[in-house]
Amino acid sequence: MNYKVNFTNEKEKRAMKDVFGATVAKMGEDPKFVYLDADLMSSIGTKKWADAHPTQAYNVGVSEANLAGMAAGLASSGLKPLAHTFGPFASRRCYDQVYLSIGYTKNDVIMIGSDAGVTAAYNGGTHMPFEDMALYRAIPHATVIDVTDSAMLENVLPKLLDMKGLKYVRLGRKEVLGVYEAGADFEVGKAALVKDGSDVAIIACGIMVAEALKAAAVLEAEGIKALVLDMFTVKPIDAEAVIAAAKKTGAIVTAENHNVIGGLGSAVADVLVKNTPVPMEMVGVQDEFGQVGPQDFLQNFYGLTSEVIVEKVKAVIARK
């Protein structure tokens, strides 16, 4: 891993979908790469490349079960498939196909679920995945990644192409708050330390890493030194990093753009109870369905903000 944190609380200039499209085009230089989409190429920035590469890119139409199954068959034929649709459809809509034809059958496939959590915004509750990571975590040996920003996306996605098994990646499509400098290098399965600290550890993933950094700045001004870990690989979780953070700080707060049931909070709690039980709080969706609205409204509604992280940090420190 080799990365520099450069958090200015500003949105990146490039939308994640454009970065995704450019990354897919680069991955397409591998002749074994094959891209499948369920009628959402225009939404994820791949249409232009796909149109120019008809033997490498296939639109299966609005049929997610077939999407997952075809990806499995392509993998069995020796190709390296990546399949995309929105998060809810990449998870619950084709769960049995992903579970059996890909996971159980040991096919090497990258599944992409875009519009992670509240980033689904105006598509509303029907399109808002708060359970996708929980579902994928329950598939044996699956890798589950919640992407933080564009630097991470363009670094991590190509690494998955030659990784064994089922890989699930969730990401937003719009501009996000940048956390890392361009050219950052990450290791799948290893948490990235984005800020050191000694009083509490905030373990976050996806868009909540930026919220954690905002919260850490507020806390710092009040004399609370928060360590912030980017746990972008939610499975397999970097247990060593969780244990080290717990030992160092004695209190943990997790933050995720997902239901606290089955996601990052659950994964961290699993590690803590077995190894280093310390007081812990979870920031995330508290067992609710999604709804329609702008992302800032949704983040406020579900408590996915730096303010809530600050509150939970104070609560967890009080429990030490």
């Binding site: 490498q56 296939y58 075809m70 068959g73 392509l74 034929s77 190709l79 159980y104």
Partner: peptide, 25 residues
């Protein structure tokens, strides 16, 4: 055995993937 099956319907898609993969290659 060329493909794991049992959950009905899934072999249709996996066979299409296998067939397409052979064509591509």
């Amino acid at each position: 055995i060329d493909m794991t099956t049992g959950s009905l319907g899934q072999g249709v898609s996996t066979s299409i993937g296998l067939c397409l993969g052979d064509t591509i290659q």
